[in-house]
């Protein structure tokens, strides 16, 4: 087993892991703000990216405008889902499963809608830069570095937001203890809508960052959701940094099992390890804030 192959496997594992982490980050944010798992998060990422692709390739807009549009559409969609659907479920005190099933249904709908509107092809977006770096024989693309940077930026931003701004604190309070929060004058419903809006934005960001590397197609949503969810769960669900760690863990697991076990069993291995970790480390690798659903 050459060093080069191992280095490449690690580099690829981390890169893919970052992709999962970005999606998981958004899911962790939504969970943190609403105690809900957004099973259509991957589809939101696809919608954001597909919108940007459409703007670039058909409407011929400049990239920055297309990207903004993508983020906007995903945010609006996510917000509408909250206002129109999630709120109704909350109003009648629906059980946890209903929310899960709602988002599963929406995911199904969005995926079919993306196929219907955008077609079956796979599309790429232009990357931030096309440099290639070689580290210990492993190829790393410039886009990966950008992703690391932007992810770090987002993480720091989120941490500051939740810890030091009134709005962020209110969002967390509204989800941890809705009744208590309401008594202090926090508009719980608005906070949840804000969470969904933020989650939608993050999904779009994830989609836009990774599309230059892996392309966007109508089938990608469920895979991204699953991997993102796994990343978030591994990281403890409420901890965005945990999603990063969780995502990278999964990415490395996959890559190393391809190298050391077999490329055919990659999913079986990665998911089995995921189940084992969930059972052995119930709070996730980094999670502290107590997982709901326990």
């Amino acid at each position: 087993m050459s060093m080069m192959l191992l280095a490449q496997a690690c580099a690829t594992g981390i890169t893919n892991g970052l992709i999962y982490a970005l999606v998981g980050l958004g899911m962790a944010v939504i969970f943190k703000g609403s105690r809900l798992i957004n099973a259509m998060h991957g589809e939101l990422a696809v919608v954001g990216a597909a919108t940007a692709v459409y703007c670039v390739e058909i409407a011929m807009w400049p990239t920055w405008l297309a990207v903004t549009m993508g983020m906007l559409i995903a945010m609006v969609l996510s917000t509408l889902v909250d206002i129109g659907l999630v709120r109704r479920l909350f109003n009648r005190n629906a059980r946890e499963e209903s929310f899960l099933l709602l988002t599963v249904g929406l995911g199904f709908t969005f995926s079919a809608a993306v196929l219907y509107v955008f077609g079956r092809e796979e599309h790429l977006l232009p990357a931030f830069g096309d440099e290639i770096y070689e580290v210990a024989g492993a190829i790393i693309r410039e886009q990966t570095i950008w992703i690391v940077g932007i992810a770090a930026f987002i993480l720091i931003g989120l941490k500051l937001f939740y810890k030091y701004t009134d709005f962020g604190l209110a969002m967390m309070a509204a989800s941890i203890d809705p009744d208590g929060a309401a008594t202090t004058g926090i508009n719980v419903r608005l906070m949840r809508t804000a969470t969904f809006a933020l989650g939608g934005l993050m999904a779009a960001v994830a989609g836009l960052l990774v599309t230059p590397m892996i392309g966007v197609s109508y089938q990608m949503g469920p895979i991204l959701t699953l991997k993102g969810f796994a990343a978030a769960v591994l990281g403890g669900l409420t901890n965005p940094l945990g999603a990063l760690v969780g995502g990278i863990t999964i990415g490395l697991l996959e890559s190393l099992s391809i190298v050391y076990i077999s490329s055919g069993l990659k999913d079986a291995v990665a998911l089995s390890v995921l189940i084992v970790i969930m059972i052995l480390v119930p709070d996730g690798i980094l999670g502290r804030s107590g997982r709901k659903g326990g």
Partner: peptide, 22 residues
Amino acid sequence: ILRLSGYFLALATLALGIICSN
């Protein structure tokens, strides 16, 4: 896996489904 609950259990059953499919 039944020691888990809520979303985690759901994810574990989903993982089971995918592993079997694989």
